[in-house]
Simulated assay, not measured.
Amino acid sequence: MTRPFVLWLIWQNERTRQRYHIGNLVHHEGKYVFYYEKSRKRRGLLDALENGYQPHLAFRDIDKIYVSDRLFGPFERRLPDRRRPDFPEILRTHGLSSDYTEMDLLRATGGRLATDSYEFVAPIYVYGNHFDFDFYIAGWRYYEGEQILKQLKIGEKVQFQLEPENEQDPKAVIVLTSQGRKLGYIPAFYSEFMFQLMENDGDYEAKIHSIHFKALPQLKVNISVCGKLVPSLKERNLNMVHDLQLEMI
């Protein structure tokens, strides 16, 4: 079975600025599937509902698994129009070739609109004893990243540091250069995973995957992470593509 293409749908509370993983979009063997993330994970749908979230108007039933032969209209409209004169430049900026897929473009751009607080991000993929994911550094504008941006290199290793004393988020994980310069944080919907991995001395490697000098602050530096699971994390279902969903595709 081929590996499904999965994206997490993230919602941000505009008042608190906190972001939540509220749903999953899957593309597999020609079918698109969307379902809400109802597990008891931290910063998932249940937390979001307690903090003001209202289900998307096109996906009102949080218990339903939505299936389509094409990308759902509300998500397709989030993609840049290929008729735009600068569309080839958009592809180049995001490192996409002319044979890109809609899911490729949705992942690269995040599907962000100025009119709401949704975005798509890559999931944590788990396969056997290994995992991988990538993320844009959160809180970039508030720390040292901009000062040393031109010194950073693609492929350069970064390090993570736990911050359990953080009053707003006791599972916070700081992103540092190998020289100890603070760049920002791992986004909260990933940080619990890394926090637990690091607390249990898990094996991982993190490095700079891409740098976009002219992008918005929250999209300037992307970090890729790969490693091996510790037993406590291996027991959890972190792949986000459950057997039920795959049977529905």
Score class of each variant (00 low, 15 high):
residue 69 D to V: 00
residue 153 K to T: 11
residue 197 L to S: 00
residue 236 R to C: 05
residue 112 R to P: 05
residue 50 E to L: 15
residue 183 L to H: 06
residue 170 P to Q: 05
residue 105 L to T: 12
residue 52 G to D: 08
residue 179 Q to R: 14
residue 135 F to E: 06
residue 215 A to K: 10
residue 4 P to M: 02
residue 156 E to V: 13
residue 149 L to E: 13
residue 107 R to E: 15
residue 204 Y to G: 02
residue 204 Y to C: 04
residue 68 S to E: 11
residue 247 E to Y: 00
residue 140 W to H: 05
residue 15 R to L: 11
residue 188 A to M: 08
residue 44 G to C: 06
residue 59 F to S: 01
residue 100 Y to I: 12
residue 244 L to W: 02
residue 26 V to M: 04
residue 38 K to R: 15
residue 144 E to I: 01
residue 172 A to G: 05
residue 191 S to Q: 06
residue 5 F to A: 11
residue 242 H to R: 15
residue 236 R to Y: 00
residue 26 V to A: 00
residue 235 E to Q: 13
residue 247 E to Q: 01
residue 64 K to A: 06
residue 48 A to L: 09
residue 133 F to K: 02
residue 161 Q to E: 14
residue 23 G to N: 07
residue 210 S to A: 15
residue 183 L to F: 05
residue 108 A to T: 07
residue 188 A to K: 12
residue 232 S to G: 01
residue 222 N to I: 07
residue 127 Y to F: 06
residue 133 F to W: 10
residue 223 I to Q: 09
residue 125 Y to L: 09
residue 118 Y to T: 03
residue 121 V to K: 08
residue 193 F to T: 05
residue 123 P to A: 01
residue 219 L to Q: 12
residue 96 L to C: 07
residue 203 D to T: 14
residue 190 Y to F: 10
residue 225 V to K: 04
residue 159 Q to M: 10
residue 183 L to P: 04
residue 158 V to F: 04
residue 177 T to S: 03
residue 7 L to N: 06
residue 161 Q to D: 04
residue 240 M to P: 00
residue 178 S to F: 05
residue 90 I to A: 11
residue 170 P to V: 05
residue 5 F to D: 12
residue 175 V to W: 12
residue 26 V to F: 01
residue 218 Q to E: 15
residue 88 P to S: 10
residue 57 L to I: 14
residue 68 S to T: 00
residue 238 L to H: 06
residue 168 Q to R: 13
residue 173 V to K: 03
residue 154 I to S: 06
residue 190 Y to T: 08
residue 162 L to K: 03
residue 46 L to V: 12
residue 134 D to M: 04
residue 246 L to G: 02
residue 160 F to H: 02
residue 197 L to E: 04
residue 81 D to L: 04
residue 21 H to T: 00
residue 104 D to W: 08
residue 62 I to A: 01
residue 97 S to T: 12
residue 213 F to V: 14
residue 66 Y to R: 00
residue 49 L to E: 06
residue 152 L to N: 02
residue 98 S to L: 15
residue 231 P to G: 02
residue 149 L to G: 06
residue 206 A to F: 04
residue 131 F to D: 00
residue 104 D to S: 07
residue 75 F to R: 05
residue 117 S to E: 15
residue 90 I to F: 11
residue 54 Q to N: 14
residue 48 A to R: 13
residue 205 E to S: 12
residue 30 G to L: 05
residue 37 E to G: 02
residue 185 Y to R: 09
residue 109 T to P: 03
residue 54 Q to D: 13
residue 245 Q to D: 07
residue 15 R to G: 06
residue 172 A to T: 04
residue 152 L to R: 03
residue 169 D to K: 01
residue 187 P to G: 03
residue 236 R to S: 09
residue 235 E to H: 09
residue 158 V to D: 03
residue 213 F to R: 15
residue 12 Q to G: 08
residue 197 L to H: 09
residue 184 G to E: 07
residue 11 W to V: 06
residue 148 I to P: 04
residue 163 E to Y: 09
residue 56 H to E: 09
residue 44 G to D: 08
residue 165 E to W: 07
residue 72 F to Q: 02
residue 209 H to P: 00
residue 67 V to A: 01
residue 181 R to L: 10
residue 141 R to D: 15
residue 103 M to F: 10
residue 31 K to G: 01
residue 46 L to G: 03
residue 220 K to P: 04
residue 29 E to S: 11
residue 219 L to K: 14
residue 128 G to M: 01
residue 86 D to M: 12
residue 155 G to R: 02
